[in-house]
């Protein structure tokens, strides 16, 4: 009986360590769009709130919930980035009460930020708090030269 508890304790700690390390590795990493996997290749299938948010060049759509504190850090970082770069727009969608939007976009954790071009095609996505400079570098080809 005590044995069972010990094994479950060890399993929980090992699992926690593994998941924690994987999450730390993936945190803020930029992933190019993967059409057919988490990306619907047809932009006309975008959820209405996302389609309505798209700007003239590149739009960073941040998926957040009320219960997510890294979302707030991400918001501050991306808002500054958009302010300082012409053609870049940042929209923070709180989907706490509309989880189906996240489902449609294949988003499992918050914050996830998806960059769209003007036509609504996904360029890349980032899970966790993104690094502003790296993100900007990846988006530069899609932004008009300043």
């Amino acid at each position: 009986m005590g044995q069972t508890g010990l094994w479950i304790l060890l399993a929980a700690l090992v699992a926690g360590l593994a998941v924690g390390l994987v999450l730390r590795l993936r945190e803020g990493r930029i992933r190019p769009a993967r059409p057919g996997e988490d990306v619907d290749p047809d932009p006309s299938h975008l959820p209405e709130r996302v389609a309505a948010a798209l700007g003239p060049a590149v739009t960073l759509v941040q998926i957040s919930t009320t219960f997510c504190s890294p979302c707030r850090h991400t918001h501050a970082r991306l808002a500054t980035l958009a302010e300082n770069n012409d053609g870049l727009r940042h929209v923070d969608l709180d989907v706490t009460h509309e989880p189906e939007i996240a489902h449609q976009l294949g988003v499992l954790r918050t914050p996830t930020t998806i960059a769209y071009d003007a036509a609504g095609a996904e360029l890349l996505r980032v899970g966790g708090v993104p690094d502003a400079d790296t993100l900007l570098d990846s988006l530069r080809p899609h932004l008009a030269p300043a």
Partner: peptide, 12 residues
């Protein structure tokens, strides 16, 4: 250990 809030980030 990792300052990762599982319940918060996987709310969806």
């Amino acid at each position: 250990a990792f300052d990762f809030c599982l319940g918060c980030e996987t709310y969806l």
